[in-house]
Design a protein around this nucleic acid. Structure first.
Length: 279
DNA sequence: CATATGTCCTGAGAGC
DNA sequence: TGCTCTCAGGACATAT
């Protein structure tokens, strides 16, 4: 489930396509339902083929491939989507192929569950989408803005961190990791958190995300996530709490990690060293 | 307006 | 062994 570190790793892995021209766009036929492609294939080809790739950026959990036409291709991996330069894990779930000039040859969008999407947007469309759907990027947001955007909410902090309109990039796995490092209870209400706790969350967020990027993201036991060269990430070996229910907390070495459910998603935390109210 | 819940999707793994 | 069932959680639509 690509979150900010995995998508940032994808973005970096796609560096070789910068400068290449898109020569063909191919949708392999497959027995599975096709992923969402906007606009349809014919219009997509008309606008993409012949264009050169100027840059590959990231916004939250989306990869933005900028074209020399002022259009951009937005890759949204959601649960199981991958952007690949290397051969995919299998052919069956290959959803879209961009054939390119230059050394990279081709850029693939592979998605086992097919919840991801590929959209080609013009500049106003992209700007509108970003403004209406995405908060500041979690990797660079400052503590003051983080606090300003979340502190008024009555929601539980773990749930609020997942709201992409408030803050872009944090997903279910990293929300647990961040709050554990910050020492903040996942069920603490945003509007009850103290300034020192917001500072701790902001610092922990940057620390966790940067370290996870250094390890090229997390490949969980299902093995789905891969970088652009179809290699596993390494951060799963450094998870503090995620999917570690029952194990001893690495922070206090005293209490077992607990799993609870918030907003239909698993949360992992240490009941001893994550508190609702700082002091 | 803010917040909560339901939905999409496929494959892995559990249980019988 | 093979069937059925549950679960995983991205973002968005719909409900409260």
């Amino acid at each position: 489930m690509p979150e900010l570190p995995e998508v940032e790793t994808m973005r970096r892995g796609l560096a070789p396509v910068v400068g290449a021209a898109i020569q063909r766009v191919v949708r392999p036929c497959c027995r599975l339902r096709p992923i969402q492609l906007t606009p349809g294939l014919a219009a997509f080809r008309r606008r993409a083929v012949g264009r050169r790739i100027l840059a590959v950026d990231r916004l939250g959990k989306r990869v933005i491939v900028r074209l020399d036409s002022d259009d951009a291709i937005v890759l949204e991996p959601r649960m199981t989507g991958l952007a690949l330069l290397a051969d995919p894990p299998d052919e069956e779930h290959l959803r879209l192929v961009f054939e390119l000039s230059g050394t990279a040859r081709r850029l693939l969008f592979w998605d086992r569950r097919g919840l991801g999407s590929v959209r080609l947007l013009d500049r106003p469309q992209l700007e509108r989408a970003v403004a209406s759907r995405l908060g500041p990027d979690a990797l660079t947001v400052g503590v003051a803005e983080l606090r300003q955007r979340l502190a008024g909410s009555r929601r539980e902090i773990k749930v609020a961190l997942l709201d992409q309109r408030a803050l872009a990039g944090v997903g279910n796995l990293y929300a647990s990791e961040i709050l554990h490092l910050a020492g903040v209870h996942p069920q603490a209400r945003c509007n009850r958190l103290r300034p020192a706790q917001w500072s701790a969350i902001g610092a922990a967020m940057h620390e966790v995300l940067e370290l996870a990027i250094r390890y090229e993201g997390s490949t969980l036991s299902d093995g789905t996530y891969r970088n652009a060269l179809n290699q596993s990430g390494g951060y799963q070996n450094h998870h503090r709490v995620y999917d570690r229910a029952g194990e001893t907390c690495p922070r206090c070495l005293g209490a077992p990690i607990r799993r609870i459910v918030q907003a239909q998603r698993s949360t992992f935390f240490c009941p001893r060293c994550q508190t609702k109210r700082g002091r």
